[in-house]
Nucleic acid binder design. Structure first.
Lengths: 360, 360
DNA sequence: AAGCAGGGCAAAAACGATTTTGGTTTCGCC
DNA sequence: GGCGAAACCAAAATCGTTTTTGCCCTGCTT
C-alpha cells in the first residue's frame, strides 16, 4: 500500500519539498497513495470509476501533502480557466464610486458557488481599457469577462461580440443584444419626477450625469415622459449635463439659478455625487436644500444618509444584483441559448432633501 | 521564405482559425514566418541570438495573426506567472473605503511598467481571507501577494512568512520584519494634537478607529506622546474606540458629551468616516463643529472637502504610495536582500472643521 | 467451463509554450 | 585553403495536469 523506497525514488523525493504550497505536485500524491497519477486526478475531480477506498486514500494523501493542482497546468490541459474577470474602468478608480464594491461582493459569491473564481483587473484609461480587453481575450486568462459603464454605442461590446469570449455587462447598450443586467433607470427618472410633481413642483431640473453612459439616456427618457404626462412643457434649459469634476453639481446650480428668470424649484440628479455637490451649491447661494429647493439623488451612496439634509435618493440591492449577474454568467458558461438579460428594480428612499414646493 | 503548402499542413491550417484570439498559437506564427517555433519564442521574448530580419518577420507574423502566447502554457513552463495579487478584505468591500482605489491605481502603474500584471481578489470574510491566502499560495496563480489592514499580530503575515511566496503589506505589524509600506501614522497623531494645542485646546479626545489595526496603535502613541509633551495629563475617558457602524462617530460624541462633567473641546478622529459621523453627532446636540468643537479627521476622503464645515484632515498621495509599493514588490521579485520597508509622509490639510478653543 | 461485461486502475498522449542542446552555416584569420 | 568561432536556427525535452486508451481481473451468465 505504501510507496516503496527505491534509491531512485529517494532521489526524487529529495527533489522538491519546495518552499511550501508548491511541494510535490500530483506525482507525490500518487506515490503516497500508492496509485498512478491519473487515478489521483480522477479521484480528486470526482470521476465515477474510482473505488471509494482509493478515493479516500488519495484524498488523505493530498490533504497531508497540502496538495492543490497547479492552476496553470490544469488550465492548459483542460483549456478552461474557471475564472471570470471583472474589468474596472478608470472613472471608478479615480472617484469613489461605491457602486461596484457591493456588486463585486455579490458577483464573487455567486461565482464561487459555481466553482469559478473572480478576478478583477484595472484599466487605467479608456483607451487602455480597450487594449486591456484585447489582451484578456487573446491571452486566455479567463472564461468570461464582465464590465460596466456601458455606453449607448459601446465599442467594447462590439469587440466582444466578435471575440468569441463570453461576456456580460452591467448596463445595456442601445442595441442591447448581448448579456446584460441593468437598473431600471427609466423608471427612476419617472418616479423621481412623479414624486416631485406630487409635492407640487412644476419647474424640475435634471442634473444629469454624463450622457455618454447609456443609463443617463434611459433616466432622461423617464424624466421627459413623466414631465409630459404631468403636462409640463419640456424646457431644454432645465437639463444640465454634469461631469465628474469635484464641483459637478454646484456648477450646474450656479448655471441654473444665477441670472435667470425662472429658476427650478426641484433638482433631480443623475447620481448622489452630483446631488451632494448641488446641495453645497445651493447652500452657497443661501438656499436651503429640502426647504427652498427639493433635491433627489440616485445610487444611494453610504454617506448620502449622513449629509444634511439627508439625501432622498434611489437605492438598489447591489449585492443581490451582483449575485444575479454571477448566476447569469454561470448560465452563459453552461451554454444557455440566446441573450440573457435582467432588470433590477430600484426604490426611492425618502429622506429630507426633497420637500414640498413653496407657494409662490 | 513562405511556408510550403503540403496537404498535411493544409489539414493543420484548417484546424483552428478558432473563435478569435486563440487562433493558432505559436505554431501558426512559426509557419507564417517560415521559422521554427523555438525561434518564434526567442524572437518574441527578446533574446539576443536571433537575426534582426528574422525577428522582424516573426513580429510581423505574430501581429498579423493576433498572436499572444497562452498564459497558462508560458506560466507552466517558466514557473512564474508575472502576476501580483492584491487581496481586498471584507471591510473594504462593505464600506466605501476609497483608500485602496488610488493605491491600486499606482500599484498597477508600477507593476505594469515592470512587465507584471495586477490582479485583485476579494475575500469576503476575515476567516475566508485566510483561506483565500492559502489557496493563492498553493495554487500558484501569482508570484507575489499584497494585502493591507494589518494587525499588530497578524496571522496572515505569519503564514506568509512560512509560505515561501513573496509578499508585502500596506501597514506594518508590531514585529514588522517583512516587506511593508506604511503611513507615518504616529506623526499624524502627533501633528493633530500639536495643531489643536496650538489652537488653545486642552481637552482633546481621540475617536480612534478599531485598535485591532496596527495603524491605530501608532496614531494613539503619537497622540499620547504629544499630549504628554504639552503637559496634558492622560485621561482614559478621552479615548473612545469607534467601530464601523453607520453612526460610528456620533455614538462616541454622545458618550463624550452627554451627562459628563468636562466634555472635550476637540476631537481627533481615526478616519474621515468617524469624523463626519462625529460632526453629525455634534450637530444633533446643537453644537457647531469647527466653532464649538474642533474636529480633525484622517485619510482625506473625496467627500471630506465637501461637507459643512469642510473637514480638516490628513491627506496622502495614495497613487504615489501605490507606485512605491509596486516598485518595492518588483525589487523583491528581482531578489532584493533583506526586508524592504518604506514610510510615506502625510500632510495636514487645514479646512474649516478645526477652530480655536472657546475661552471658557 | 468458457465467455463476457464492466469496474478499477496504469500507461501514455495531449495542452502550448520556454529552454536546452546541438547542428549548420557563415565569416574571419592565419 | 583549412580551422575555429560566432551567429543563427531546428529539434527535442520539459513544465504538471487532464483525458484517452486499454489492460487486468473479478464475477456472473450460459
Amino acid at each position: 500500500m505504501a510507496a516503496e523506497d527505491g534509491p531512485g525514488q529517494a532521489q526524487i523525493m529529495a527533489g522538491e519539498p519546495g518552499p511550501a504550497g508548491r511541494r510535490g505536485g500530483i506525482r507525490q500524491v500518487a506515490r503516497l497513495a500508492g496509485v498512478s497519477i491519473s487515478t489521483v486526478s480522477r479521484a480528486l475531480n470526482g470521476y465515477a470509476d474510482v473505488n471509494a477506498d482509493t478515493r479516500a486514500r488519495v484524498a488523505e494523501a493530498a490533504e497531508s501533502l497540502g496538495y492543490h493542482p497547479s492552476w496553470a497546468a490544469a488550465t492548459l490541459r483542460r483549456a478552461e480557466t474557471r475564472t471570470v474577470t471583472f474589468m474596472v474602468s478608470k472613472p471608478w478608480t479615480k472617484f469613489v464610486d461605491p457602486f461596484f464594491l457591493g456588486l463585486l461582493d455579490g458577483l464573487e459569491l455567486a461565482l464561487s458557488a459555481g466553482g469559478y473564481h473572480l478576478q478583477v483587473v484595472m484599466a487605467r484609461e479608456y483607451d487602455r481599457e480597450f487594449e486591456t480587453i484585447r489582451r484578456i481575450v487573446a491571452v486566455g486568462r479567463c472564461d468570461a469577462l464582465v464590465f460596466a459603464r456601458t455606453r449607448p454605442v459601446d465599442e467594447r461590446v462590439e469587440f466582444m461580440k466578435t471575440a468569441g469570449l463570453p461576456f456580460a455587462t452591467v448596463g445595456r447598450t442601445f442595441a442591447g443584444d448581448h448579456d446584460w443586467i441593468d437598473r431600471d433607470t427609466e423608471s427612476m427618472g419617472r418616479m423621481g419626477v412623479e414624486r416631485l410633481v406630487a409635492l407640487g413642483h412644476r419647474r424640475i431640473a435634471l442634473l444629469s450625469a454624463p450622457l455618454r453612459y447609456t443609463y443617463m439616456h434611459q433616466m432622461r427618457d423617464g424624466v421627459r415622459a413623466a414631465l409630459a404626462q404631468a403636462g409640463i412643457a419640456p424646457d431644454p434649459a432645465m437639463e444640465v449635463e454634469c461631469y465628474l469634476s469635484r464641483a459637478t453639481g454646484a456648477e450646474a446650480v450656479r448655471q441654473l439659478f444665477v441670472g435667470r428668470g425662472r429658476a427650478p424649484t426641484a433638482l433631480l440628479c443623475g447620481n448622489d455625487m452630483i446631488a451632494m455637490s448641488a446641495m453645497e451649491g445651493l447652500a452657497a447661494l443661501g438656499l436651503v436644500p429640502g426647504q427652498d429647493v427639493a433635491v433627489i439623488g440616485a445610487e444611494d451612496m453610504p454617506l448620502s444618509a449622513h449629509v444634511t439634509p439627508a439625501l432622498t435618493t434611489f437605492s438598489l440591492d447591489l449585492e443581490g444584483m451582483g449575485q444575479r449577474l454571477g448566476r447569469m454568467v454561470l448560465a452563459r458558461l453552461a451554454g444557455a441559448p440566446g441573450p440573457l438579460q435582467e432588470w433590477v428594480e430600484t426604490q426611492l428612499v425618502i429622506r429630507q432633501s426633497d420637500g414640498p414646493a413653496r407657494p409662490e
